[in-house]
């Protein structure tokens, strides 16, 4: 039955961020002399390869590495939470040089397996090795790949606020909205950054927020979208995976604007999606694989943020005025320089 009745999986856009001071030390990779193919294994979480979110982005990074680096890669989809440990273990047993786990649901599994295979390198997207008590236990063979999604949320929030303030195109009600899948911290950090930007750039703009209670169901996303639009929203930011595609569709049907998440979603609805809040999981996966190749693998926290192009904003639609785009570029620079620190808790629930 798998996902037929399988409700909202805690999958899609789930993410975690953290204050990422680097604690790990660069580690020389003695295991694989250059010129020999490295073996890389990727384990998805229960969202599966086609979640159009971080699992599929991670897989794109893997495929890119396969094409450009001297590596042999393979992927395993996890069907249940209980599969994480054996899926990671199998790759470790098969003497892979690097095993990558996608998603913070795998934090405890990574800790278990990485302590059992100290000679295998691991990486985890959106998390860190976590012991049975739930405490972070950094390991010398695990790279924790983090993203500051509140920064990405902030940048697209600047575009939304600027357009709302200046009543650009269909954005005439000075109201902007967002929809998460579920109110869990990783989703809320995107929304928090978005709201922070709107409050900063355009304090008079009305903000609404809602949740589809699902990461798969498009119709639920559409209903939240219709409800928001009826309340005057004309810029809608989705943080809800497949359900969020419905939110975008609601905007498209009503002729207002939407903002994509995680990947560049401009192609989902050209003319509707004005930009996307990017979280470059593919880049992180590719760079981590390359670091093993080059012997620069760094255990501990690896932050992907505005300073290293780990987050950003996607294709900007032609409707977006130059000043809004410039403001976003400026915000990105200000975040990178530390001038702006986006909030990471939601203000308008």
């Amino acid at each position: 039955m798998k996902r037929i009745l399988a409700f909202s999986l805690l999958a899609a856009t789930i993410v975690a961020s953290c204050a990422s001071t680097s604690t790990g030390t660069p580690q020389a990779s003695g295991s694989s002399p250059t010129g020999q193919h490295l073996k890389i294994g990727l384990v998805t979480d229960i969202g599966g390869l086609n979640d159009k979110s971080f699992n599929s982005l991670a897989d794109q990074g893997r495929q890119q590495a396969q094409a450009q680096l001297l590596v042999v890669t393979s992927v395993t989809e996890s069907k249940q939470q209980a599969d994480y440990v054996p899926n990671l273990t199998k790759y470790a047993q098969d003497k892979n040089d690097l095993v990558i786990g996608v998603g913070f649901l795998m934090q405890n599994a990574i800790w278990k397996v990485a302590t059992q295979f100290p000679n295998v390198k691991f990486a985890i997207i959106d998390g860190a090795p976590t012991d049975d008590a739930g405490a972070v236990k950094n390991l010398p063979n695990v790279a924790n790949l983090f993203f500051k999604e509140q920064e990405a949320g902030y940048i697209v929030g600047v575009i939304a606020a600027t357009m709302a303030k200046n009543k650009v195109g269909a954005a005439i009600h000075n109201t902007v909205c967002s929809m998460g899948g579920l109110p869990i911290p990783p989703v809320d950090r995107y929304i928090a950054g978005y709201q922070d930007a709107v409050k900063t750039v355009s304090p008079t703009t009305k903000i609404l927020n809602g949740y589809s209670q699902d990461f798969v169901d498009q119709q639920k996303g559409i209903e939240i979208g219709k409800s928001h639009i009826a309340q005057g929203c004309d810029i809608l930011f989705q943080v809800a995976g497949g359900s969020g595609l419905g939110y975008i569709q609601a905007a498209k049907a009503a002729g207002v604007y939407a903002i994509g998440v995680d990947a560049d979603q401009a192609a989902v609805a050209p003319g509707t999606v004005i930009t996307s809040a990017l979280k470059k999981v593919d880049v992180a996966v590719f760079q981590t694989i390359r670091s093993v190749r080059l012997g620069t693998f760094k255990a501990g926290d690896n932050s992907f943020n505005a300073t290293n192009d780990g987050i950003g904003f996607g294709t900007v639609d032609a409707i977006v005025p130059a000043d809004a785009k410039a403001a976003a570029t400026q915000a990105l620079a200000d975040i990178a320089s530390g001038k702006i620190t986006p909030k990471d808790t939601v203000q308008v629930k």
């Binding site: 996902r3 599966g48 159009k52 798969v216 169901d217 498009q218 497949g242 569709q249 989902v268």
Partner: peptide, 16 residues
């Protein structure tokens, strides 16, 4: 669902 509402397909979109 797909042609009338969502104008697209996503895996398992009937959701039970």
């Amino acid at each position: 669902l797909s042609l009338g509402v969502a104008h697209s397909f996503t895996d398992g979109m009937t959701g039970g």
